[in-house]
Design a protein around this nucleic acid. Structure first.
Lengths: 143, 143
DNA sequence: GCAATATACTTGATTAGTCAAGTATATTGC
DNA sequence: GCAATATACTTGACTAATCAAGTATATTGC
């Protein structure tokens, strides 16, 4: 197998894996009314300084567009899981802030998320997982 | 970092990488009027015995639903890139067959695809790529 | 200071996929 | 042989994202 074909195979495998991950997370998080992407949002907010991020930063972190983040956040705002906060220095910016209800839901749904994560990436492969992490970080740092 | 958090980080990195891959492929393949998923379809068909696959098999290989594959194939059929073929033993089955125009487009667009692939996974990381491939195959075999 | 350019976000239109239901047909178990 | 169940595919309705255009505001360069 040539390096080119291998690269392509890997990319196809990644695409397939992603569908598996998404489906698994969606299924396990649905009891909490969250999708995989919803969970990612809560996760990033929960790990951000002050539990808040600029919308554009959140969108970038997730690899989606500005309008994508607007759309995805709308129902979460409606449910009171996240809120908005203006930036005193830049009127263009609207922060997304994790609301108490959102933080609680994040914590509660962590169990379902970890169940899904372990279904896809069993902890029995801890060593290889460390390698995978390094590889991914390296790849992403290039992109 | 606990193993659980690492697993979650990896999964988030995978999700991000997938958006990078999709965007890169979409951008580079657009000159040929193909999306990343369109290219995947042509690729699998081109590598299948007789250049044909059952729709349900194609859908499974790509990790999408039966209706998803119906939708995705519709424009490709319209463009004459793929065709249909009945199965003489099973009236439920409708094969997807790669048409000559589809095969040609696949070959022509391979350059753009490989450009995108190498942008995301530079060949300079050949060694690590082999590891990545093994890891992915192993993960997918579990899922 | 001001026009040109860039940035952050939203909105209307569109694209691309899933879900649920439906149709047709094959398989299973009695 | 036949009803129950499973499989393959399509379709209508819906969800979820992107694109393009728009609004507001900040930055840049003269």
């Amino acid at each position: 197998m040539s390096a080119q074909n291998r690269t392509l195979s890997i990319i196809l495998a990644l695409a397939k894996l992603q569908t598996v991950v998404t489906r698994k997370f969606d299924a396990n998080l649905s009891v909490h009314g969250l999708s995989f992407n919803d969970f990612i949002i809560l996760h990033y907010l929960s790990n951000a300084p002050g539990n808040k991020l600029r919308r554009i930063d959140l969108a970038e972190q997730m690899g989606i567009t500005a309008s994508g983040i607007t759309r995805t956040l709308a129902p979460l705002e409606k449910r009171g899981l996240v809120g908005r906060e203006a930036n005193e220095h830049d009127a263009r910016v609207s922060y997304v802030v994790l609301a108490p209800a959102g933080e609680e839901l994040y914590n509660v749904s962590m169990k379902a998320a970890m169940y899904a994560a372990n279904a896809v990436l069993p902890v029995s492969k801890t060593k290889k997982i460390v390698q995978l992490e390094e590889l991914l970080l390296e790849i992403l740092s290039v992109s």
